[in-house]
Amino acid sequence: MKCKGRVSGVLGRLLRWAGWTAAYLLGLVALVLAGAWVWWQPEPEARGTEVNALWARHQWVGEPHGDAEYRAFGELLKRNRITDVYFHAGPFEADGTVPASKYRNARRLIAAMREYAPGVRSQAYLGQVRVVEGKGVIDLDDPAVRERVLETDAAFLDLGFDGIHYDFEPVYPDDRAFMTLMDRTRELTRARGRLLSVALEQPPLFDDLQPVYRALVPRTGPVHYPPRPTGDFLRAVADRADQVAIMTYDVSLPTRSLAGWHFARHTRATLELIGDRTTVFIGVPSYRPLMEWAEDLSVALRGVRRGVDQLERPPGRPYGVGVYADWTTSQDEWSRYRSTWLPRPTESPAG
């Protein structure tokens, strides 16, 4: 009986301890959510910029379009102050080439852009799943593959594209082959007076989390522990690229205020880190992510503006947002973008 009583007493204490722990954690979560909600309420003071990017669907280079479609697209770009369009022109084949049949309409597109959207830079958006640990599609560690990638880049520049926009995934901070390709591509684009831009994953909250990612998510496939750029890596890329677009979307947070905090935090951190080195575009989504009640274009834009508010000074180089993507952005969303992001007519545009 005494033994049973002791067991019962220990069990009771464990249950009480578990209950208090759960209550403490729930209270902590409630405080975080309440604090984020309060922080989110004031209207941001900062307005956006007139230097912005748009990712565009492959059909623009792969399929023919009528003159009215080109004219309407050009008007959309001008009305929304889009300065750079990343036209999906790939992906690369495993050998570093892109079949000409995939971009058979590219020359007509470039001519139409010059006619209906003069001054807007058209860049060839090229990428592929990077081979890591033997998994993936394109092996950038192979010098012959890198040479064919450069030859493909040159072919797109010959067509009249204003730049090359890379999106290789995953790219890790120790990826020397990727940095070699960036060096070689910069030589090519600068020799022709064109641009080199690159899309990268959002950085981690702290560089010291990279070893944690490695420990928790081992390299088992083409996408393993999150390919988050460290500060040193991001600065190194910024020194090689004319533009860096941070893919800040897919936040997977449960409330709008937390999702907004995510965009604000990455805006401030990225602009403070590389805003004096290169043009920065903070990626904002117009598609419907998994948690669509928390993340949308309005939340992202408001969050970016809050991040700009937190800067001690404006970046030395232009900055803006990169809208992902043209095929998912409705007219209503474009209207909200203009009303909440673009500078007011009486204001001098930032960036």
Score class of each variant (00 low, 15 high):
14 L>N: 09
157 L>A: 07
111 A>V: 14
259 A>S: 11
197 S>Y: 01
196 L>R: 03
118 P>T: 12
161 F>G: 03
143 P>C: 15
151 E>L: 08
174 D>I: 09
257 S>E: 08
77 L>H: 02
297 L>T: 03
240 R>M: 12
265 R>E: 09
47 R>S: 00
54 L>P: 05
319 Y>M: 01
115 E>A: 12
143 P>H: 05
123 Q>A: 03
301 L>M: 07
7 V>Y: 10
128 Q>D: 15
38 V>F: 08
77 L>I: 03
133 E>N: 13
149 V>W: 02
28 L>T: 12
253 L>N: 12
42 P>T: 01
299 V>L: 04
125 Y>H: 13
300 A>G: 10
123 Q>T: 06
90 G>F: 04
320 G>I: 01
221 G>Q: 12
184 R>K: 07
192 R>F: 08
310 Q>G: 00
71 R>K: 13
179 M>T: 10
200 L>T: 11
34 A>H: 08
245 A>T: 09
98 V>I: 13
35 G>M: 06
177 A>P: 05
229 P>N: 13
236 A>V: 15
165 H>P: 08
143 P>K: 08
226 P>E: 10
328 T>P: 02
330 S>F: 05
7 V>E: 10
133 E>R: 12
256 R>D: 01
12 G>I: 10
293 W>A: 14
167 D>M: 09
180 T>I: 12
25 L>K: 11
80 N>Y: 05
344 R>I: 00
205 L>S: 09
328 T>G: 11
193 G>S: 06
318 P>N: 06
71 R>Y: 14
67 D>T: 09
230 T>I: 13
149 V>Q: 03
19 G>D: 14
138 I>P: 01
70 Y>F: 11
136 G>R: 13
66 G>A: 13
4 K>W: 12
172 Y>E: 09
87 F>C: 04
77 L>G: 02
29 V>S: 10
32 V>L: 11
311 L>F: 01
337 Y>A: 03
306 R>I: 00
284 V>D: 01
275 G>I: 02
169 E>A: 10
325 A>K: 11
340 T>G: 01
239 D>S: 11
234 L>T: 06
22 A>P: 05
48 G>K: 00
30 A>V: 06
57 R>Q: 13
316 G>S: 10
142 D>P: 02
232 D>C: 14
304 V>L: 00
15 L>I: 14
307 G>Y: 00
30 A>M: 05
184 R>Q: 14
62 G>A: 09
126 L>G: 07
275 G>S: 11
141 D>E: 15
